[in-house]
Amino acid sequence: MSKVKYYYDSETLSYRKIEIKKGKKLGLSLLFLLAVMVTSIILLIIYLNIPNLETPKEKAYKRELQNMKLQYELLNRKMDQAVNVLEDLEDRDDNIYRVYFEANPISDEQRKAGFGGVNRYSNLEGFDNSELIIGTKQKLDQLTKRIVVHSKSLDDVTNLAENKEALLASIPAIQPIRNKDQKRMASGYGMRMDPIYKFRKMHNGMDFSAPTGTPVYATGNAKVKEIKRPNRSGGYGNLIVLDHGFGIETYYAHLDDFNVRRNQKVMRGEIIGYVGDTGKSTAPHLHYEVRRNGRPVNPINYYYNDLNSEEYEIMMNQASQENQSLD
């Protein structure tokens, strides 16, 4: 409660109450409000410039930000662990599973390819922790892609495993004629002297000399792809082509006669024809070829079901001699 002030009036010889004029009272009120505002502004400036001084909201936001940084760091560590596990799986996939099933390994470029083109992370730029967030997102995207590539690779390996039995049965793994004494192998794979034109040329198969009418056997499970007569075989004479699947084909040339028809399925060891002397041939024999993905390969590498180590050594020595072929 404000004090009431008086003054002594000498004329009336009495004390009178001091009355403040309304204009002056209003001025004093405005002056007080102004002083309060200025003081508040000064105090606010001082408050905001005090070092390490934070509002409760700022403290809450800071704690939340620190917690998010910690979570991102934990996520990055977990992703690093996942990458280590994935690299071990990829190594097994390339060096064990795909090798066992004779499949080409997946290149590092394919497994670890990045994401080119437009900036995928432009919406994450411009923040105090953009580098941390973008780095984590990139790592997660790359990990996801590698998992997808590895998953597809495992699907391929699964299919190869399911087809392994069929593959083993289809590979041409025996000699096309009975040749236990190893005396019927007349000419091997490689550069040989042509018996008619008398110059060295590539001999894409192996020649087995045998009397006309000697049975010729399918060297692996297959389907008869082609049967050609001399006028259509280009020097092969009577020719049978077997498709074993998996990119493998075998050729049986200069036959005397056929024992199969086109598109017929045959089993390893089944008689498909008989040795003859048809086409570009100088004596009764069987010209035998193995082709993989359309290219001739050395048939001697496929006799592992038919020869022991000693017999294989004998045939290797015979096949390596640069003699004259029979066709």
Rank of each mutant, 00 (worst) to 15 (best):
L132E: 10
M79W: 04
R120M: 13
R111K: 15
L89W: 08
L124H: 01
E90P: 02
F101L: 04
I147C: 11
K78F: 13
K137Q: 12
E109M: 13
L143M: 12
G114Q: 08
L143R: 05
G116N: 06
N119Q: 05
T144P: 03
I133W: 00
D91F: 14
K112I: 00
L140D: 05
D128N: 07
I106G: 07
S151N: 15
A82Y: 04
M79P: 00
V85Y: 13
N129C: 05
K152Q: 12
V148L: 13
V83P: 01
L124R: 02
R92F: 09
G117C: 04
K139P: 00
V149P: 01
D141R: 10
K145A: 12
S130W: 10
N123R: 10
F101T: 01
D141I: 06
A103N: 03
D128W: 11
D128M: 08
N104S: 11
V148K: 15
R98A: 02
L124V: 05
K78A: 15
A113R: 14
I96E: 03
S107I: 12
K139A: 07
A113V: 15
K137V: 05
R77E: 13
D93A: 15
V118D: 10
Q81N: 10
R98T: 02
L124T: 01
N84P: 01
L86G: 03
I133R: 01
Q142P: 00
D108K: 12
G116A: 05
N84W: 10
N95L: 07
D80M: 11
K137W: 07
D128H: 04
I134M: 08
E90K: 09
I106L: 13
Y121Q: 03
F101A: 00
K112Q: 11
F101K: 03
K137F: 10
T144K: 15
A113T: 11
N129R: 06
N104I: 10
K112L: 07
D141V: 06
I134R: 02
N95T: 13
L140S: 11
P105M: 11
A103I: 08
V148M: 11
R77W: 07
L143H: 04
R98F: 02
F127G: 09
V99M: 06
S107W: 04
E90W: 05
I134L: 06
D94K: 13
V118S: 09
D93G: 05
G117Q: 08
Q142C: 03
M79L: 14
K112R: 14
D93E: 14
Q81K: 14
I134S: 03
G135I: 02
G117Y: 02
R98E: 00
K112T: 09
H150Y: 14
Y121N: 08
T136K: 05
N123D: 05
L124Y: 07
G117S: 11
Y100H: 12
A113D: 05
T144A: 06
E90S: 10
V99A: 02
R146S: 05
E102D: 08
G114Y: 08
N104T: 12
F101C: 03
R92P: 00
